[in-house]
Nucleic acid binder design. Structure first.
Lengths: 142, 142
DNA sequence: TCAAATTGTTTGGACGCCAAACAAAAACTC
DNA sequence: GAGTTTTTGTTTGGCGTCCAAACAATTTGA
């Protein structure tokens, strides 16, 4: 009942994958607080569509490194919430993607939340450290 | 057909959460190749149980920062594969966890796979960089 | 002794990953 | 131009992980 026996982390704590998961979990939790109602992944899509209006589903999926088939359901939901619209392209296989006005508005709000979020996260890192973290992460992503 | 219009990443690429996801995805993909048949999370559990035989479900969940309720199903599966066993503790609410012999064997094999995996990942980083990456990730995880 | 907390569990929901298949449309090949 | 191949969006199904709320059994604390 007294002191719980100490837990030895074993090899676990030295594993990159494990440490990445812990970090990502912490970041996502903070994100959820700062940007309610929109998951990191979804905001990412909105940001990307905003920066590339008319982008195709496949190219979007490729750009954010997600599966084409995963994209369908997510976009369905965003469309159902009237945040984006699809429009058939001249290549009639494709759907072009645009933000609706509501989507723009929500994105703007989300971006303010993200700013707070990033600020809170970055508070634990100096600017140089933050930059280097991104650099090292980039090296790992290939 | 020629040059696809360039996609501008927008604010996305500067976001820590996004970059963490990309890195983790890359690491997990490589992991899946190096350690077939066992997800990173599950190997983590085996490692932890091995280092802390008799550990309780709740304490295990807490240690690896997962939910108690998530743990149940995963442990069910590991037990169904005869990799671990549960045994009721003297506090009769608890289940103590141990690796079975098969679990030990599989873990040993997995650890060899992980060694290859980490080596391949670490190839993109110097030892110092790797150390610093872990340090920075730790800072973020809180 | 009685109320409160803990443990494992179930249920239900959400998100994201992947693989295999399919029809429509476009791009190639001959 | 006819026929094959490729691409695109889609559906389906499965897996892993996360979270919240509830519950019975058990232990702890008042």
């Amino acid at each position: 009942m007294d002191a719980k026996q100490k837990l030895t982390p074993g090899a676990l704590y030295g594993l990159l994958g494990y440490r990445l998961r812990l970090a990502q979990q912490a970041v996502f939790r903070d994100f959820a607080v700062s940007v309610p109602g929109l998951s990191p992944g979804r905001v990412g899509l909105l940001i990307f569509i905003d920066a590339n209006p008319g982008v195709t589903q496949s190219r979007l999926a490729e750009a954010v490194e997600r599966d084409r088939s995963t994209m369908v359901g997510v976009l369905d939901q965003l469309e159902a919430r009237s945040l984006i619209k699809r429009r058939r392209g001249e290549d009639r296989r494709t759907n072009g993607l645009w933000l609706t006005r509501a989507g723009c508005t929500l994105l703007a709000r989300a971006l303010r939340g993200i700013a707070r979020h990033e600020k809170r996260i970055a508070a634990r890192l100096s600017a140089a450290e933050r930059r280097q973290l991104l650099e090292l992460l980039g090296r790992i992503s290939g």
